[in-house]
């Protein structure tokens, strides 16, 4: 169901796994409202926090393998990109 192994080339493309990033929206609603309600002693607040934590874990389980693959591949190329950028920045008129 969830792809765990990514080659750098595969990870460079946007895929359905990236959509998991949108889970941040319900997670933040659950955390924001949940903590406020929990602090005034409402049970529903604690429940919302638990669901929020569960969703956050699921999101990272889906996203982490891919983002790790992109990151390691990109760091390999970063030096070359920075050199090119500095060359462009220091153009002569």
């Amino acid at each position: 169901m969830i792809k765990r192994e990514w080659t750098p080339e595969e990870a460079d493309s946007w895929t359905k796994e990236d959509l998991a990033g949108f889970l941040s929206l319900p997670i933040f609603i659950l955390f924001g409202a949940g903590l406020a309600l929990a602090l005034i002693g409402r049970m529903v607040g604690f429940l919302m926090l638990v669901i929020g934590v569960g969703l956050a874990i699921a999101m990272f389980v889906i996203l982490n393998p891919k983002i790790s693959a992109i990151s390691s591949e990109y760091e390999r190329r970063q030096k070359e990109y920075i050199e090119e950028m500095e060359k462009k920045e220091r153009w002569k008129r």
Partner: peptide, 30 residues
Amino acid sequence: GLAGIWYGFFTVWVAISAFFSTKLFRRSPV
């Protein structure tokens, strides 16, 4: 009241960005 917390909810863009525009921006070492 507590509904006012949503006025501070614009921050969520940072969380969404973490997996979208942040990745894209970081790839250009500007």
